[in-house]
Amino acid sequence: MRSVALRLGQGACVLVGISMLVFAVFFATPGADPTARIAGRGASPQILARIRHDYGFDRALPVQYIRMMDKLFVARDLTSFVDHGERVVPEVFAAAPVTLSLVGGAAIIWVGLSVLIGVVCALWPNGIVDRVLMGLSVLLLSIPVFWLGEVVNLVTQSRYHDTMLFSWVPPLGYVPFLQSPSGWFRSLLLPWLVLSSSFAGLYARVLRAELMAASGEDYMRTARAKGLSPLRIMLNHGLRMSWLGFVSLFGLDVAQLIGGGALLTEVVFALPGVGHLTYRALTDLDLPLIMATVLYSAAFVVIANALVDLVYLALDPRLRTGTRHG
């Protein structure tokens, strides 16, 4: 329990640090005029004056920082002037479920697929199946996600949309789960497959390498000497150990995807997620929106990291020393 509390405290410190850093980059850089940036291009003098007062840009830096954090996390009334006074925090929260759906589904697919490929390859190493699957995973790994996405769209949206095969594909965009679960699933299936492809390739290769390395270990020899079947040995012993490296990789990848890393997939499939929002904020130079997305992304990454550590504790009893009797 103490280690859990410790992790949470650490995460909080990291978040505060990141927020200060981001704040410094946008507001405390010499020569930068945050008022004009927040107001966006071509704002009137009245708006500029209101912003200057509202954000405390006429006051000391710490006050500005605290005002900003208050607007972001407490009052949550940070407003985008570029976007006609839209409040940005609710926007981020509206985008989050889309990204979570996209990344969650893709993660399930790529973990399932890579475990299957990795285990099959490690069971019959250097055989024909192994070579074909490893070649395939390099291919998956090296296809750029936006290109694959565009090709998929080309095939399923325009050219062959009316054939039997792809008539189920809905138009681009997101359907909320609560509105129609089946619509949600159909709108996300192709984005899931596209997003998971390169990860599936990478993870399959990593897992195979881990399993092959494990197969020379003493505990694998013991498992063979016990008379277990190869599959049992691979799953109960090999995979049980190789999970550890897998989980840390997984946590980092999921965190960065949720924090906006799925941008390309979201843009290609017109999914209004966090990545898409960041993309829009950057192209419009919408400073409040950039602040909000960057900080919320950072929060996701930190939370995901803390979760990974907890999963680690659950998976590896050796890390739990200090707790009573495991």
């Binding site: 003493d218 505990y219 013991t222 012993h237 049980r240 550890l244």
Partner: peptide, 10 residues
């Protein structure tokens, strides 16, 4: 070596 011969996580 009974340390490495047992699987450490079970």
């Amino acid at each position: 070596d009974p340390m490495s011969a047992f699987l450490p996580v079970r």
